[in-house]
Design a protein around this nucleic acid. Sequence first.
DNA 1: CCAAAAGTGTTTAAGCTACACCCATGG
DNA 2: CCATGGGTGTAGCTTAAACACTTTTGG
Lengths: 243, 243
Amino acid sequence: MEPEKILNISVDCVVFGYDITTKSLNVLVIKRFLEAEGKVLVDDYVLTGYHVYKQETLDQTATRVLKELTGLTGQYKKQFKAFGNPDRLTNEKDIIWIKNEEFNLRTITIAYYFLLKTEDVDVNKNKYQAKWFPVNNLPELGFDHKKIIEEAYEDLKIKCLSEPIIFKLLPDKFTINEAQDLYQSILGIEIDNRNFRRKLINKKYIIALDEKQVGVSKKPAQLYMFSLDLYEKMFKKNYLINI
Amino acid sequence: MEPEKILNISVDCVVFGYDITTKSLNVLVIKRFLEAEGKVLVDDYVLTGYHVYKQETLDQTATRVLKELTGLTGQYKKQFKAFGNPDRLTNEKDIIWIKNEEFNLRTITIAYYFLLKTEDVDVNKNKYQAKWFPVNNLPELGFDHKKIIEEAYEDLKIKCLSEPIIFKLLPDKFTINEAQDLYQSILGIEIDNRNFRRKLINKKYIIALDEKQVGVSKKPAQLYMFSLDLYEKMFKKNYLINI
DNA sequence: CCAAAAGTGTTTAAGCTACACCCATGG
DNA sequence: CCATGGGTGTAGCTTAAACACTTTTGG
């Protein structure tokens, strides 16, 4: 039996997945479709989310929602904002949709984002018809979910500059150029390869492995890994005022 | 008549006030006191907060709570986190207290912080018995409010390094040394006066006024102001990766 | 004239920016 | 042998960090 739900509080999850082959930062959304008397009433996408259970923390709700959607656990997650405007679920389509759901029209949602790799999710046999879209080319989205995604993306852009979270989006073993491509995708900028290389390789917590890429046509690149252990050991808060 | 409340969703406000004379970053809290049969049951402090009304945004709730407490409007505010652990209101004292209030035991709170000057609040004739405490020397606090304050403070520490929010804590006209003292209070560090001075004075949006301090014994210092207008005009996002 | 706080310069080191070509590999 | 992406070095400039004494003013 399902635990008791809090009907007016939900968690919504912005699942960011990086596709290393297409160099695309994507968001995982699910299909929302409803028809009646042969007419399509609702046909768009939404974020995955769910009510908070009476006996769980918000973090637990987020973890549960991600697992239900993707089967994954232990991924990087961050609570970034609560959305609670009175009109956030009151577009025409949303109201039609909510009629079919056990949903309070005045629901506040606590939004999280997750960082993972697109390849870790098997969207083909997904019961929610989950689908990846590039964060810069989103489909029509229900509720206020476009806004939620945009704010998650802004938070991610800022956070990736000061914390080593990009490695959550990369495979354990990656090349310098892959890391550069990722930054370029997230930030939408061009980075000088020589400067970026030097910067990364000089970090003691970026470890060159005794391994190179295999199975690539052309010159295989040196593989590196990120050591969270070393990062935390040498981490020193710097109070650089930069206003 | 009071608007309809959402009984399980509240907003709590961490009001930071800087006291320029004592160089202390303070938090405004209100008294919580209850006795029965001559015995003191509850005697501590809490943040100000209130239920969200059915027809208002979360930001509006926060603004309303601050106005109710201080009479002030238009102060800098930031929503920084939602707190929703199932056990966050279940300490012994909290349960006693909640019996007297129209409060759901499973309430989720959206926490905001405000930045202002202690002198802008008249605590003496405050009906909530509001009181300032240094953020590093807080009294006993009810609910999970100690944790909320600590997380607000952490957010403020990070944010003041990259955004010109300290000027919300200073008078319109301030001296360089006052700004330095403020940074030192917030961050708990010592800053070299010559380096700090040069840094600030070189900013085009820090404007030297044709005015000096008056009424001070000893040498009166040059007054400056912060121009938000100029700041925004010259603001250029820099994508410095610093991991 | 004295106490107190304001204000001032220089040197060194680190790190960012800009910039163009050769190399190694697999096919 | 060639196409492709991997990999490399330097010089100039900006900015941070470290450091101690003089000046101005009100009382």
